[in-house]
């Protein structure tokens, strides 16, 4: 396993370099000029030109790229063009909210979706199965912002049970954190529940028809034991894959939920930085996301080995 980890870390270096080149190139090819945005709607051409020079945006692209890459190699991701704050500080400032939100959503998802999918598979073609599948289609089809606003309308505005917006760190105020997390995590979880329930169901259906399950039943195991101890672990690989990818997707793609519930997370930072053409922040974030995907894939591979010792790399 150590060899796997070492190999993956080594192979991530060229991956990150390729990501860096692509992100840098795409950003510079896309229309929009940070100096124009920074100067504002009423700025004169002279003011914009002076800003462009001040920000180093008038330098040839290869020089800009090499300067940035040299900084990254030493851990300096540069400063935000707009706020002049270090890129890494901005990312870490927003990371906690997104991580906490993503993890709580995944926990809710796994606790509800895996049993639902398993029951649907176990009661294949029954009304329970159809109900679970119908719910999962609905969960997948209704946009997160619709669910979010509906939850907010009832639980916050009408019944005044939960706060509308904001993020409270669980390290500072655990109770406040829970109150602020309930609505956004449920909103986010509903979409992923649909996905994971469906994957769990289809994966289990395949396993439940295999010989070892029949053998387990023949040996007199209870239905519950057959499902949870024999079938589910063997159906776990695709479920782990989807959960793993889901975590990575959540970290990089929670912008709608973050915007609806006004949570200052990575998703909002990304969208804001892209819209403002804040090049150093976008570049830093893309590298960070690439790192997250590499890391999550590694964790998924390790999880495969744990749940299925037959798997070798």
């Amino acid at each position: 396993m150590l060899r796997l980890v070492a190999l993956r870390i080594l192979s991530s270096v060229p991956v990150m370099f390729i990501v860096a080149v692509i992100v840098f190139g795409l950003l510079r090819l896309s229309p929009g000029d940070p100096a124009v945005i920074l100067a504002g709607d009423s700025a004169t051409p002279e003011a914009i030109a002076a800003l462009r020079q001040q920000l180093g945006l008038d330098q040839p692209l290869p020089i800009q790229f090499v300067t940035w890459l040299a900084g990254v190699a030493t851990g300096d991701f540069g400063q935000s063009i707009l706020s002049r704050m270090p890129v890494l500080a901005l990312i870490f400032d927003r990371l906690e909210a997104t991580l906490v939100l993503a993890v709580s959503a995944i926990i809710i998802t796994v606790l509800i979706a895996v049993p639902l999918g398993a029951i649907a598979a176990w009661r294949h073609n029954s009304w329970i199965d159809r109900a679970v599948m119908a719910l999962s289609v609905a969960g997948f089809s209704v946009p997160a912002f619709v669910i979010g606003y509906l939850l907010m309308l009832f639980f916050s505005v009408k019944w005044e049970l939960l706060p509308v917006q904001g993020y409270v760190s669980p390290f500072a105020d655990p109770g406040g954190a829970v109150r602020h997390l309930i609505l956004p995590s449920v909103t986010l979880a509903l979409v992923f529940m649909a996905l994971i329930a469906r994957v769990t169901r289809s994966s289990l259906l395949e396993v439940l028809n295999q010989d070892f399950v029949r053998t387990a039943r023949a040996k007199g195991n209870s239905q519950r034991r057959v499902l949870w101890r024999h079938a589910l672990p063997n159906a776990a690989v695709p479920i782990i894959t989807v959960i793993g990818i889901g975590i990575a997707m959540l970290i990089s793609g929670v912008v709608v939920t973050e915007s609806v519930f006004n949570i200052p997370g990575i998703g909002r930072l990304t969208i804001d930085a892209i819209l403002a053409r804040d090049y150093p922040v976008v570049q830093g974030l893309m590298l960070f996301f690439a790192l997250i995907y590499v890391g999550v894939n590694l964790l998924i591979d390790i999880a495969y080995i744990i749940v299925d010792p037959r798997i070798r790399y």
């Binding site: 309308l153 916050s156 505005v157 706060p163 509308v164 917006q165 915007s259 006004n262 909002r268």
Partner: peptide, 18 residues
């Protein structure tokens, strides 16, 4: 000062005394 990307959320927050 708190920035709200969603104006609808801001209105709900005002009504909810946030």
């Amino acid at each position: 000062t708190i920035w709200f990307p969603s104006p609808d959320t801001a209105i709900s927050a005002l009504q909810n005394n946030e």
